[in-house]
């Protein structure tokens, strides 16, 4: 039994670390290029609260010291990178003095839950439908229906979300309009809470699923056509194998491999799309946290959320890369 070669893992680790570093640096550097001074925003917020502020200059200086932006850039940068690696993004300015990491820790499980469910469902449904478009034994009706459904899958989930929300929540009132669970429901391990979560999660998940499966289906269709023409599919038929067995073990099993690589490349865009869906459904996840932070100009939260989502993306890519050699034995061979 051959194992994954060391160089392969090292290469992927380098990519992972580089992704995290570049993303963290971009997030740090961009606000510093901006003429906007976060201390002044904080001061502005105080002024808005108290009417007037005396000793504005002194307060500004104190704020700057607190935020650490009076120090040399390089010192700030090193401090920031250290913090980021420990997932410490400082304190939220809008919900002062709650640490950003605490806010993210509250929001993250919601996002992760929604993400896992919707991404996995779309990936499976999409690839299966794509495979069925090519398979010669697919019923005629399906072969007409699937491509027709495909047209709507070019729409980003945010638009489908609006539509579903209007039809099923606002008009028919089958599902709640916003939130991740009912306002009157006490969070806990109860049936009422669980059903409330499911009810609230259904529409956001559906709005992602209905429009993103097409991407996978189209990719799969192209790959299946290639696999269908390959010699091992011909031989499988000549072996007298059952059509269904050929479909799963010979065709889909081979065609899915590039799709998994594509999954790793697309995961960032998919998560970003989901963040927007969370925002319109006011779902208690990272999307809502980000949107609220943008409204409040709460920079530490914006940075923290962006960083964590990018980290999540990079980790997913890394994990997919690590699993890949186990599903495609040729990779193990090539690198070794």
């Amino acid at each position: 039994m051959s194992r994954i070669p060391k160089e392969y893992i090292i290469n992927r680790l380098i990519t992972l670390v580089l992704t995290i570093l570049i993303a963290a640096t971009l997030i740090w550097i961009i606000p510093r290029l901006s003429p906007v001074d976060p201390a002044e925003i904080a001061l502005g917020r105080m002024a808005a609260g108290a009417g007037t502020v005396e000793n504005a200059d002194e307060i500004l200086a104190t704020l700057r010291a607190q935020m650490g932006i009076d120090q040399p850039m390089i010192v700030q940068y090193i401090k920031y990178i250290k913090g980021v690696l420990l997932l410490d993004f400082g304190l939220s300015t809008a919900a002062f003095p709650t640490p950003v990491s605490a806010l993210i820790a509250n929001a993250l499980p919601w996002t992760l839950g929604l993400m896992l469910i919707s991404l996995i469902i779309t990936f499976i449904v999409g690839n299966l439908l794509g495979a069925l478009m090519v398979w010669e034994k697919t019923p005629r009706l399906w072969k007409v229906a699937i491509p027709a459904a495909m047209v709507f899958t070019s729409i980003p989930p945010i638009l489908s979300g609006l539509l579903l929300m209007w039809i099923f929540a606002a008009k028919l009132q089958w599902f709640p309009l916003t939130g991740a669970y009912g306002l009157t429901v006490e969070p806990g391990w109860t049936w009422t809470f669980a059903s409330s979560v499911l009810q609230h999660g259904f529409l956001p998940a559906l709005s992602i699923v209905v429009v993103t499966f097409g991407f996978w289906a189209l990719g799969m269709r192209g790959l299946m056509i290639t696999v269908q023409g390959e010699d091992h599919t011909t031989l499988a038929k000549a072996k007298g194998l059952k059509p269904r067995y050929i479909l799963y073990k010979y065709m889909i099993r081979n065609a899915i491999l590039p799709q998994i690589t594509a999954f790793a490349l697309k995961i960032g865009l998919l998560i970003a799309g989901q963040v927007l869906v969370e925002r319109i459904f006011a779902y208690n996840g990272m999307g809502k946290l980000l949107y609220d932070a943008i409204l409040d100009q709460d920079f530490p939260v914006i940075q923290g959320v962006s960083y964590v989502i990018i980290l999540l993306t990079a980790l997913s890519v890394f994990i997919v890369d690590l699993i890949y050699p186990f599903i495609d034995p040729r990779v193990r061979h090539e690198v070794a």
Binding site: D231, A238, R330
Partner: peptide, 16 residues
């Protein structure tokens, strides 16, 4: 009736 195909290079399922 058995069929031995032309492209032996690619006639076997690469992941089995």
């Amino acid at each position: 009736v058995a069929y031995i195909p032309q492209g032996a290079m690619n006639s076997l399922n690469p992941i089995m």
